[in-house]
Amino acid sequence: MPYQPRVAILVPAPDYYEKWQPAFARKAAALTGAGLVVEQRVWTDPGDLSGYDLILPLFAWGYQRDVAVWYGLLDRLEAEDLPVVNPVAVLRWNSDKAYLAQLAAKNVAVVPTVEATALDEASLAEARATLGADEVVIKPAVSGGADGTHRIASGAPVPTDAIGQRRLVQPLMQGILTTGEFSLFYFAGRFSHAIVKRPASGDFRVQEQFGGREEPWTASVAAQALAEAALAAAPAPPVYARVDMVGDAAGTLHIMELELIEPSLFLHHAPDKGAAFGSAIYAAI
């Protein structure tokens, strides 16, 4: 029997609150279909990882809540020279949304963003003036799952949990309320599929836990070009990637974020149900 490479998928601790197992099953099926043996290791305490052909942080969900542990894991993976996809340099770069400023510096259209090192009423007012927007969204620079993300209406104060904290301030992009947020998926640099995610009525968050829903979307040439320009700015080519973007009031698309660590890949919406994903991971070994 030919050798089957072993891959470790980093997963949340048993008491993690989000339901990750259905998405894990889809990804694992794609990987086993490509000829890989898949095992789980808890990302916060994975133990010895030296015996694996590849380590995938595909379900390191909640890393934004244990930032020191997360960066410690990245340091360890790098120090032990373990085979990781995406590469550690990409994971570290993608962990902090300061990368949006780097994309903007390379003329990639991103959602306009002002960083406040210690958010207060004065810095919020200054950010609103800089952005030319009364209604804004704030989020932590290291964030996921809409943790710590707030929509702040004109004249509303800084939310209590954000006072004195490092926050990114962005205008509320009207496209999120009208057409939704678009996600494009790439495996080994090749476009696979796309979806549109829409928030529940009265909300602006598109995540499933807040009532968001998704459906397949036919990505335009402009959307694919924007996604590929953003991915080209990463420290190394990502093997798997999700690119989230949203339109402004005129419909012009802007990068919301790059998901290169532990993205939901919505493989059930891929025409090949994840075969390209499996092949990309296998080829990275």
Rank of each mutant, 00 (worst) to 15 (best):
R213P: 02
T160R: 08
V206N: 06
K106C: 11
R167G: 00
L103I: 06
V142Y: 01
R128G: 03
A153H: 12
T130P: 00
G148E: 03
R190P: 04
V114F: 02
A153D: 14
A129N: 09
E181W: 15
E135V: 11
A127S: 15
W217C: 14
V158W: 14
R166I: 08
V137Y: 00
R151F: 05
P140G: 07
A125Q: 12
G180V: 13
I195P: 09
A105M: 01
Q165F: 11
F204E: 03
G211R: 11
Q165C: 10
A122S: 11
S143F: 11
I176P: 11
G189I: 04
T130I: 12
T117K: 09
E121F: 01
G132L: 01
S143G: 13
F185H: 09
H150Y: 14
V114N: 05
T179F: 00
E214G: 05
E121V: 05
Q174E: 15
A146R: 02
R213V: 14
R198V: 14
P171V: 07
K106V: 04
P140E: 07
G145R: 04
K106N: 11
D147N: 04
A156V: 03
R205G: 09
K106L: 11
P112E: 03
E181G: 14
H193R: 07
Y186P: 00
A116G: 10
N107D: 14
V114G: 06
Q209F: 06
V169I: 15
A116S: 15
A129I: 03
E181P: 13
S123C: 10
V111K: 01
R128K: 07
K139N: 02
V111R: 00
I152D: 09
E135F: 01
R151P: 00
D161V: 13
K139P: 00
A194Y: 05
S123E: 09
I152M: 08
P112T: 10
R190L: 10
V169S: 11
L103S: 06
P159F: 08
W217L: 15
P159C: 07
V136T: 06
L172A: 08
H150N: 09
I176M: 10
D120P: 09
Q209C: 01
T113L: 10
P112M: 02
G180S: 12
W217D: 15
R151I: 04
P171M: 07
A200E: 13
S183D: 02
D147T: 03
I176L: 12
K197R: 15
A141G: 09
G145C: 10
I176C: 11
D134E: 15
L131K: 09
A188K: 05
A109K: 15
D134L: 13
L168W: 02
